[in-house]
Each structure stands twice: as C-alpha cells, then as structure tokens.
Amino acid sequence: MSQTISQTIEQAHIVPDAMIGLRLDQAAAALFDDFSRERLKSWIREGALTLDGQRAQPKSPVPSGATLALHVVLEERDSWQPEAIELEIVFADDQLLVINKPAGLVVHPAAGNESGTLLNALLHYDATLATLPRAGIVHRLDKDTSGLMVVARTLAAQTALVEQLQARSVKREYDAVVTGTPIAGGRIEAPIGRHPSDRKRQAVVAHGGKPAVTHYRVLERFRGHTHVRCRLETGRTHQIRVHMAHQRLPLIGDPLYGGRPRLPPGATEALKEVLREFPRQALHARRLAFDHPVSGETLAFSSELPDEIYMLLDVLREDRESH
C-alpha cells in the first residue's frame, strides 16, 4: 500500500490585464497550471478557489486586478498509480517510446494533480517504467501544447537522451499561429527566468535568466495573424510562448502570454468566434529527431497538425480571401 501524507496548498495570483474578461476556470487553469482544469473547477465550486475572497462560479468573468486565491488540504500518495489512458504511440522498441501527446494532457503529476497524467498512462502501458526516474520522461510539453515527445524505457537510454538534450543535438520543431504579421522570420536569443512578480509565468529577464534561443520562419501570412515554424536550440519552460510574446507575436489562445484577441478590420464572424473560443495556445510539436541511444541511428518523426489548428488556419484563410 502507498502511504498518504497531508499537504496544504496556498497560492494566490492577481489577474493580469491579458486575462480580463476570461471565465474564472480559464484564468485559473492558466495561473494554477500545476493542476488539472477539472480539479480547479471542483475547487471553485467547493469554495476552495475564490475570486477576490468570494465564492464564484466557474463561468464567472474575472475583472481587472482581481485576486484568485487557492487554499486546499491535499492528501498525496508517495507513489504514482498506472491508469488506462489511451496513448498514441508513434514508435516503440525496447529502449524508447515516441508518443503524440494531445492538448490537455498534463505530463507529470504534481500536488493536487496526481492522476490522469501522461506518467500514469505510461505506467499502465509499461509497468517496468516505474523503475525509472519520472517513468522515463526526459522532456516536457506544456499541458495545452500537443505533439511529439520521446520517453526512455531503460536507465541507459534515459541518460543518453538527457545528454543529447543538454548538448542541443535533439531537433525539435513546432508549428504556432501567432497574432501579428512579421515581415520575415528570425533568431531570438533572450534569457528566460521566473517572472519577477508572478511565479506561474516566465519572462525575458536582464539578470539571472537561463540562455534561450528560438529560430522562427514564416509559413503563411493572414491579415492580422501568421503561421510560423519554430525551432528550439534550448528547452526552457514556456520558451516559444515567452519568446514570441517578447517579439510582440503572442500565440493565439495563450491565456498567460497572449493578451486579448486582436482582430483585423472587418473580421468575419467566423474569425471572431474562433479567436474568442479557441481552447488552448496554438502550438504543436510537429517534428522530433535524435540519435537512437543504442544503435546511434538518427530517428526522425513528424506529426500532423491537430484538427483545431487546421480549423483555425482555414478560418484565417477564409477571412483573408474575403477581403
């Protein structure tokens, strides 16, 4: 049997201007992103997560300067349990797995989010992964980013893959849809560290940040938005989201860094609706390449854009063609 321990979670965040008018559950999911959206909704209903000290409904809009406060006592297990969560396995051998992660799936359990994660799914897929640190997970994708990840199945493979990541020899490309119309792509070299006043956010910082480099190029322009492809040299938390926002090209649907949706003049009703309702940041890990930890063979994988990003691009094209 696994032991349980009690833990008190107390966190508070002031709603940034970019989130004004969002639903309470949407703002909470962005600010308290260690926890699943469903867990946060239940805490809102129970009154454990309050809006300016008052109970509210998950759909309540958040006003400017509001404080979201969480106070909850959790019971945590000291071991994680396998769960029958469907995984899209792109590649598997005795050393590693490559998976295509859907948006909305948290990678690793955290306090208050101990189930329903990729790690729980991996333990169900292969029980031997319980012998490895983090069940073989060597890198992460944000909860609401979709796409390709590699997972080790042996300690030797995990060590080798981590070394490749540290040496920047793993090739990672992402597709993103951003607000703004850059003339051309470019190289962003700007250190990233914890935001000085909000622990849930990262930021480009002048002092104390970790080196971070992102390359991006334009794939398709629309009237007020652009489809770009990003290539990572480094892998900092929220790197693409932070770097693109720093370039004043925030990702569509990003509640933490995206700001309010900006519409081109005379936007179609379909475009207004899709930008208002887009469920997550428009970011997808489309390509992953690395050397096999045993054979040394270079492996490369690609993943098609998920349906919601295809739909977003179609609506942006229709708006462009209508003018």
Rank of each mutant, 00 (worst) to 15 (best):
G116Y: 01
P191C: 01
S295R: 04
R317W: 08
L299I: 12
G104E: 05
A156G: 10
R217A: 15
A27M: 06
H243V: 11
L97P: 08
T214N: 06
A27T: 13
C230M: 05
L31I: 10
P255C: 01
R168F: 14
P109G: 00
H238I: 13
A29W: 02
Q247T: 12
G208C: 08
A289T: 14
Y125V: 11
T268I: 00
V90R: 03
V90M: 06
L283E: 07
L129F: 06
V274D: 07
A121D: 10
G235M: 00
S6N: 12
L105F: 00
Q158R: 12
L87K: 02
S303R: 06
R229P: 13
R187W: 10
T159M: 01
H13C: 03
D175P: 06
A167K: 12
Q95K: 10
E83R: 10
G208N: 04
G185M: 06
L316M: 04
D144I: 09
S197T: 15
I240K: 01
I99D: 07
Q26T: 15
Q3K: 09
D126Y: 09
L165C: 11
A12S: 13
H292A: 02
W80M: 05
E277I: 14
L24M: 13
L251N: 07
R45H: 15
H195E: 04
L49R: 10
H227F: 13
L288F: 09
L132A: 04
G186Q: 05
D33F: 00
G193W: 10
M1L: 02
E76V: 14
I192M: 00
P102Q: 05
G53L: 00
S197Q: 10
E321F: 09
E114S: 04
E269Y: 01
H195I: 09
D52A: 07
R262S: 12
F222A: 03
H71K: 11
A190C: 03
G193C: 03
P61K: 01
K272R: 14
P264I: 11
M1S: 12
P102N: 05
V90Q: 08
R39G: 11
D93M: 00
V106N: 00
S79Q: 13
A300G: 14
F278Y: 12
F290Q: 10
E38N: 09
L31P: 13
F290A: 10
A156P: 03
F290N: 07
E277C: 08
L155C: 13
T298V: 03
I183F: 01
I5R: 11
K171P: 08
D254R: 05
K101D: 11
G224F: 05
V150Y: 09
R248H: 14
A190G: 10
L129A: 07
R199G: 11
V73I: 13
L129Y: 13
T145E: 07
L148W: 06
G258A: 02
V138G: 01
V177N: 01
E233N: 07
R77D: 15
D254F: 08
D33A: 02
F278N: 03
L70N: 06
E83S: 09
A160E: 11
R23H: 11
G224E: 07
L283N: 12
R223Y: 12
I89W: 02
R45W: 12
P306C: 08
A282V: 01
H195P: 04
